[in-house]
Design a protein around this nucleic acid. Structure first.
Lengths: 207, 207
DNA sequence: CATATTTGCCAACGTGCGTTGACTTAATTG
DNA sequence: CAATTAAGTCAACGCACGTTGGCAAATATG
């Protein structure tokens, strides 16, 4: 944006055109269904240029699918509203501009592309986990973060990838309130009996 | 199972061998990454047989990816434990035998295959929505069901598709308790202020 | 035993893919 | 203006894919 006309060298402009086109197509079609010819057509250049600029389709994907969740420093947020704060943050990032965060890109591809899946796991480990860890007891951090991740992933899947009509129709503040409350419970561990076992209920372990 | 040796015609055995192989491969690799040659190799027959038996790769996928959630009649379940009941049901179905439910198959492919995505939406509409509808006020049913779907989809994604380590490590009863509580709140609408707006109801009819 | 009919393998087709290298045009520089 | 370099096109490669048709076994049928 801001129309780079004469100042920037042509090469930089095409580079960015390719990256933009790739991001859009990877986001809406996933890695496998997106061809370098498609990307080239959308960027207004020949497909071979993409290889020359980025080396390979995989390299381009790796370049483009680098989501930075930019989680706010939750240590400064009032622990009582951590849930709503996180959901609000994600919603803003996901629908603010045209999928800038890059997380939808990964989500589309992670199901069939192991590299994308690993990248998502890494994001979880490096960004979600530490942010959640400080909101409750350290020894339960992994499970708390896992629960949070499952709800956030599900929201993103339902709203942006699967596009379930009712989930698409939900107003942002409705989501923030309801899903936020869930994240809140998960994150702080205040929710239910958050330990794997409460009393020795004589469990009937299934599978 | 039950070793069909001499009774069943050969054709039926191969048919089933193909379906089994296809289900397994579609489940673990998704639609795009699974080739008919792979399926043939796993089923112990030539790839061309698959076309002869099922017409096309798409037709085979359609045949195999027909998940029936087999939701229990939640009308008979105590509304106070609907959440746990649902989560328990899904977990049992998902990890009971070798991915019999077919939902993981769809989940893998839905991200990049529009047909699979539509099928998932249909399942949501035909099975999840009605089951949730009766658990709370009819006018909020769509949103309640949407919230439920987002959490269940997220759980399935995190545990079976993405395989986030902490989520994989969770014991079944831990999930049933914690995620069950969330589903419970979503399903009954008792959770938060479940209406799109809290004051000034003035409804703004949405889709 | 002769003959259909089924069940399977094999080789090949057409297509679309990522990628490559030769060539043409535009920009830069002496 | 000539020479060099950058930016881009074009045709083609090798490959893997879904799919097809022909032919060999096997199996049923008269």
């Amino acid at each position: 944006m801001t129309d780079p006309r004469r100042t920037t060298p042509k090469s930089i402009r095409t580079r960015e055109a390719i990256e933009t086109a790739a991001r859009e197509l990877f986001t809406s079609n996933g890695f496998e269904r997106t061809t370098v010819r498609d990307i080239g057509a959308r960027a207004g250049i020949d497909a071979s240029m993409i290889i020359r600029y980025f080396g390979s389709k995989d390299a381009l994907f790796a370049r483009v699918a680098k989501p930075d969740l930019q989680l706010p420093d939750l240590g400064e947020v009032d622990p009582a509203v951590i849930g709503e704060a996180m959901v609000r943050h994600f919603l803003k990032q996901w629908e603010g501009d045209r999928a800038s965060s890059g997380l939808p890109v990964l989500l589309r591809s992670a199901a069939s592309n192991e590299e994308a899946a690993e990248r998502l796991r890494e994001i979880f480990r490096a960004q979600v986990f530490p942010a959640i860890a400080r909101a409750g007891k350290p020894e339960t951090a992994a499970f708390r973060a896992g629960l949070v991740a499952s709800q956030l992933l599900g929201l993103a899947m339902a709203r942006y990838v699967l596009r379930l009509p009712p989930v698409v129709a939900m107003p942002a503040d409705f989501i923030i309130r309801n899903v936020g409350a869930t994240i809140q419970r998960y994150a702080t561990g205040k929710a239910e009996h958050n330990e794997p076992r409460r009393v020795a209920k004589k469990n009937r372990s299934q599978a």
